[in-house]
């Protein structure tokens, strides 16, 4: 496959960025998207054209949440329910032009090229995305009764890898799907329930403080989430928030 890539290049956080056009040739359709970028970078290094393109990645098997590119107007590209590293070039056609941008949100400033600083998510987790009560050692199986339905909801929420695609896809750059996944994950389990009220108040307060936008229930986040987390978690977060604040 021969492709034209329009990639956002930005030297550092303070620099003004621009789009640069590159051509890659002979790309296998079985290549992953990140491998295609590796090939591009290899060419750049060998031919000493320009500095290689910086992009975040780590596990390359869709579980770490590090990779995240805004490809042709969609976070993690055109495939559904996958991260950028799980996207394959067979989803594109020979001769395609692919526009690659970093996540765009004020709380996610660009550090270099396609790499953004997502420590805003860490700050939200620090505000309450954990359990601080002592839960003892590993309990025997089934010693803590958790209804199957609740366990399933908690597990679905826990699938969030914190990649930030929800913020990237949201027209308001809202982080509510991410925050709600964490709130919902803990609120459904007995160990997390005891601190549920404090957690939701603190995490929502931190989310607001960091300058994320407000959800308008468009559902773009759940459509783009590589873990297909449902916006029903946002409704649950809202319920938890009202219960904590008003009741």
């Amino acid at each position: 496959m021969d492709l034209t890539l329009k990639i956002w290049r930005q030297e550092n956080a303070a620099a003004k960025g621009r789009f640069e056009t590159y051509k890659v040739t002979n790309i296998s359709p079985d290549c992953s998207f990140l491998e295609m970028l590796d090939i591009l970078n290899q060419q750049m290094i060998e031919n000493q054209i320009t500095l290689p393109v910086c992009f975040d990645n780590d596990c390359r098997e869709g579980i770490c949440g590090m990779c995240g590119l805004y490809i042709n107007g969609r976070p993690h590209g055109p495939d559904k329910g996958v991260t950028t590293c799980q996207l394959h070039m067979r989803k594109f056609k020979n001769g395609d032009t692919i526009v690659i941008e970093p996540w765009r949100a004020r709380p996610f400033p660009v550090i270099k090229d396609l790499v953004v600083d997502r420590s805003a998510f860490d700050k939200i987790i620090e505000a309450g995305g954990y359990i601080s009560v002592s839960t003892g050692g590993v309990p025997d199986a089934n010693s803590i009764p958790v209804p199957k339905k609740k366990a399933d909801v908690a597990m679905d929420a826990a699938a969030c890898i914190g990649c930030g695609a929800c913020v990237a896809s949201c027209k308001n750059a809202s982080a509510m799907l991410f925050v709600s996944a964490k709130v919902s994950h803990f609120a459904n389990l007995p160990q997390g329930k005891v601190e549920a009220k404090e957690r939701v108040k603190n995490m929502v307060a931190k989310m607001d403080e960091l300058g994320f936008g407000n959800c308008t229930n468009t559902g773009a986040c759940e459509a783009e989430c590589p873990k297909e987390i449902s916006i029903s978690h946002i409704a649950r977060m809202n319920r938890e928030f009202f219960a904590a604040k008003i009741l």
Partner: peptide
């Protein structure tokens, strides 16, 4: 919401 994304995308979703 507008302030949450001051730099927009080239290709909109």
């Amino acid at each position: 919401n507008w302030f949450a994304r001051t730099v927009g995308y080239k290709v909109g979703n």
